[in-house]
Design a protein around this nucleic acid. Structure first.
Length: 438
RNA sequence: GCGGGCGUCGCCAAGUGGUUAAGGCAGCGGCUUGUGGCGCCGCCAUUCGGGGGUUCGAAUCCCCUCGCUCGCCCCA
């Protein structure tokens, strides 16, 4: 057998320069949004004790039950690559006593890991941008958080999104509803699909977002969570809806929207796109007032969301491009090559985007390449120029003058000393102020 | 974990049992020993993801295996 091909592990992807351009744009936009909103960045380790996620997310969830990227380290500790950000952020907040210091607004960005079969919009290592508001319990914070997600997506120019919201009420509301639902469904066991039958025992609320059509039809008759909510929970939800309206953010109430994670209370929401294939969710989040206490901290309110950067980038389309150089330095001959290295550096230090041709090829080739790169101005250094302490300048990539036979355009000689100044002036558009030929 | 599709040069891609595996892009060399976007010429897969089998003969048929991809479950 031939040499085994070395390649990235399944579900792990490389981002090449063409793609990182879009990523940088997304990341920069997020940073600015959070900065304007007074949200501080938090960075936590990628690797955590498995217990953090098992306790925080819930043993019955898929994320913990079958998707964790876990292994033992050399000390035989069970470690897990974080499958999501919230548990780590809360852990850090508790560990460093942030919760004693009043409300915390935190954001994060980075890779998450879930051991699943990859498909469109899903990888084993993927990236999220997330927001967490801690120790802020009122419903205005729910709306502020959702608005920040919505506006970020909007400013990125993503179209056709839908905000879906629901409420899960308090843990008591949920428990009460669960009993009702289970009781109702048990009578109709035979009408449920096999998956849902199984969930009846493990996580009955999630039967609500079953994709099985027969089950969905059956559920139309089932008791509704909204109907069993306590007065306070219902009032809270109505207030959230009202505030969203005040901010002109369109939304739809989605009673079957049940987040997969255990710690959610009250507001749950998702922002979806119909352009993403099977993985429609761009951003998901909600309130998690129970989580901090569950992880050993003081009872503390929490609200947060996470968006998947890969999915954002998919929605932004193939607008990938690289930034073309402003100047390309062509050179041939020993002395010239050395000058080129020096001058290219000088130009870069003057803040110009400069491509230095290192091929040693003929000028003809170097020009071809310079044009293909989309460069604007060529700096040409040959033996003669190197000797004279000068370079030649010539416009690249310009259409020949119509009606004239000027397929070869002029070039000017400039001394090394004047190079930066001249190049800057030319690129600034002062084509008139051409350097005087030497 | 379970289904469907696919795997021929760095990229795109023809070929579906018969002697040397099209073509395009990119790359390299030349026409033009220092001047470009075009053009022309030449070079660029003893080999078709890997292994085994059928056959006089396989990239083409069969089996196994690996990988990619889309979907289910669930989520970002």
């Amino acid at each position: 057998m031939a040499l085994e091909r070395l390649q990235a592990l399944r579900g792990m992807v490389d981002l090449l320069p063409q793609q990182t351009m879009v990523w940088q744009q997304v990341e920069e936009q997020a940073r600015q949004h959070f900065q304007r909103a007074g949200v501080g960045e938090i960075r936590t380790p990628l690797l955590e004790a498995t217990a953090l996620f098992a306790r925080g997310i819930g043993e019955a969830t898929d994320v913990v039950g079958k998707e964790m990227y876990s292994f033992r380290d050399r000390g035989q500790r069970s470690c897990t690559l974080r499958p999501e950000g919230t548990a780590s952020v809360v852990r850090a907040a508790i560990q460093h006593g942030l919760l004693g210091q009043g409300p915390q607004r935190l954001w994060y960005m980075g890779p998450m890991f879930r051991y699943e079969r990859p498909q469109a919009g899903r990888q084993r290592q993927f990236h999220q941008i997330g927001l967490e508001l801690l120790a802020i319990a009122n419903e205005r914070s729910d709306v502020e958080a959702m608005a920040m997600a919505w506006d970020l997506l909007d400013d990125l120019g993503i179209q056709g999104l839908q905000l879906q919201i629901n409420t899960l009420g308090t843990p008591e509301d949920r428990r009460c509803y669960r009993e009702q639902l289970v009781g109702w469904l048990e009578q109709r066991m035979d009408q449920l699909d096999p998956d849902s039958q199984q969930r009846l025992a493990t996580n009955p609320l999630r039967i609500l977002d079953s994709k099985n059509q027969a089950t969905q039809d059956l559920l139309k008759e089932a008791p509704q969570l909204l109907g069993t909510l306590g007065k306070e929970s219902r009032g809270r939800f109505e207030r959230v809806c009202q505030l969203l309206q005040a901010l002109d953010i369109p939304f739809v109430i989605q009673p079957q929207l049940v987040r997969g994670l255990d710690y959610y209370t009250h507001t749950a929401f998702e922002i979806t796109s119909d352009q993403l294939g099977a993985q429609a969710t761009v951003c998901g989040g909600g309130r998690y007032d129970g989580l901090v206490a569950m992880l050993g901290g003081p009872p503390t309110a929490g609200m947060g969301w996470a968006m998947g950067i890969e999915r954002l980038v998919l929605l932004l389309g193939q607008q990938s491009r690289t930034t073309a150089p402003q100047v390309v330095v062509l050179n041939r001959g020993d002395a010239a090559q050395e000058r080129a290295l020096v001058l290219a550096r000088q130009l870069r230090r003057a803040n110009l985007r400069v491509e230095l041709d290192l091929s040693g090829a003929t000028f003809a080739r170097q020009f071809k390449r310079a044009d293909r790169l989309g460069g604007r101005l060529a700096v040409i250094i040959g033996e003669q120029e190197a000797q004279a302490g000068a370079v030649k300048l010539k416009w690249l990539h310009q259409a020949p003058h119509p009606g004239s036979e000027m397929s070869r355009r002029e070039e000017w000689t400039v001394s090394d000393r004047d190079l930066c100044r001249t190049v800057e002036r030319l690129l600034a558009g002062e084509h008139q102020a051409e350097p005087t030929p030497v």
